[in-house]
Design a protein around this nucleic acid. Structure first.
Lengths: 266, 266
DNA sequence: CTAGCTTCATCTCAGATTGAGAAAAACTCA
DNA sequence: TGAGTTTTTCTCAATCTGAGATGAAGCTAG
């Protein structure tokens, strides 16, 4: 960050700041909304809450809340936007130590919230299967909802109506996740610290909604430097059907994949 | 957009909205900053203004300004964030009819602006060579500055000090542009409506700072469906050195490239 | 108007990568 | 022990890639 630079300001700078009153400006609220994505029972899901207070009481919405600009009665200010995102999310569900949080984009259409002008900074969080969410303040239900139940893209017609422009935000997050799986090692964010190549393939299959050729996937993952590293261990196994005990891997250091895994192929 | 839905609200919703006072919330300002990128004389450049008013008088900064939340004395409200981005930019330079504007991300660290809590939504604009910028209100100089003069990445040590966290924002924009050239047809946004394959290659070379193999580039562009389409015309030519008159192409319909052009290769 | 240079466009070919299936290895359960 | 399952490795033809050569078209000096 390039903040808090130490170059001396001129005198005009100090006089200006003393005379400055933030209240002179038209109020705009800034919120964060978090699209928390996980894979449960082979199905990609998003965390949603049902609102028990206006506006949009009874509708489903992303976990979110106002960014705390300054220290106040509700608590200390959020030092930065990601802190705000983690704060509002940690009020709804337990968070794992390892998680991937990245900013999606911001939404600020004039009429997106009936209360006032609201600019919402959306975050995408990817995590391995998380526990059931809490039903917190302002909500009366919470659930990990499969993407497939939300209608595709803009089309929010479903029996779980989404408040505000949250259907669009979720669609943007899903598209971002799908495309980042191609050229980054992000898929490992959906998995526990150690995992098998098959589990990694199932992440791709769940998120992309396609079937991949197991043998070629295996070859490509191992040929991509830094994607995974061998732990030397084998999985315990004991599950259904039997079969050879798979090797366990952990996420490698690489963030970007060279070459990428392309959706078109296989 | 999922805004302005028409489902009836319950009575509590209306009572709630009537009683709601936006002034109750701590003020946060929302600004837009625009990273306008172009290629001039073979060099990729960004539009910067020198500030003539506090804060950070005399420092260079991105064109930007406050989002107008409501109609007011300065003008009508910005319907959406992209409108605000185009408004602040059109005050500084003439804009072409065809341009690519996309949101980069938002920045909201507590101390990024000395005046108050400011969340800035950054936009990236790609355009063919634009005219010289105006020196507008609050600025005393404006220039298309080569990326190379800004120091690489975080490192803002240069004789053109950048205000706030704008060095970081520019670095993020440059990285976004570099990587989107790989897997989208965005390079054409830097070019006029018709162009040659060589001009397209020079965009890649300028943005990536690498040299590409001309023959293979040619083959790959033409093999990528929807990237460019043949106009049937040849360039007039007459320039230096002579040589065969190149064929003219226009941008094709494709937004995403299959397969992508990878930076690693060639 | 022709020789020499330049740029654009196409061709060639060895080496790497990919998609599809087969086969081998390792394990479970009856 | 034997049939079935899952993981892992192997094979091979088809395709793609990187590097250079060749051909096509145009300018300009003499």
């Amino acid at each position: 960050m390039e903040t808090g630079d130490t170059r001396p300001h001129d005198d005009g700078e100090r006089r200006f700041l003393d005379a400055y009153d933030p209240r002179d400006y038209a109020p705009t609220a800034v919120t964060v909304d978090v699209v928390a994505l996980t894979i449960r029972a082979g199905t990609p899901r998003v965390l949603l809450m049902r609102r028990s207070a206006p506006p949009r009481r009874g509708w489903w919405a992303l976990p979110g809340g106002f960014v705390r600009a300054q220290d106040g009665p509700d608590g200390p200010a959020d030092p930065d936007l990601p802190d705000a995102a983690l704060r509002v999310l940690s009020e709804k569900t337990a968070l794992p130590s390892e998680l991937h949080l990245e900013q999606l984009r911001s939404y600020g259409a004039r009429d997106r919230d009936p209360r006032m002008r609201v600019v919402s900074v959306a975050y995408m969080l990817l995590a391995p299967d998380l526990p059931d969410p809490h039903v917190g303040r302002g909500t009366d239900a919470a659930a990990w909802v499969p993407w497939s139940e939300l209608g595709h893209g803009d089309d929010a017609r479903s029996d779980r109506p989404l408040a505000f422009d949250h259907a669009r935000i979720i669609a943007d997050a899903v598209e971002r996740a799908r495309s980042k799986l191609e050229y980054t090692a992000l898929a490992t964010a959906f998995l526990p610290p150690t995992f098998t190549i098959t589990a990694l393939r199932e992440v791709y299959e769940a998120v992309w909604g396609t079937r991949l050729h197991g043998a070629n996937f295996h070859r490509k993952i191992l040929a991509t430097p830094g994607f995974v590293e061998d732990t030397g261990d084998l999985a315990d196994r004991g599950g259904s059907g039997g079969g050879r005990r798979p090797r366990l891997y952990r996420a490698g250091g690489a963030a970007v994949l060279h070459p990428p895994l392309l959706r078109g192929g296989q």
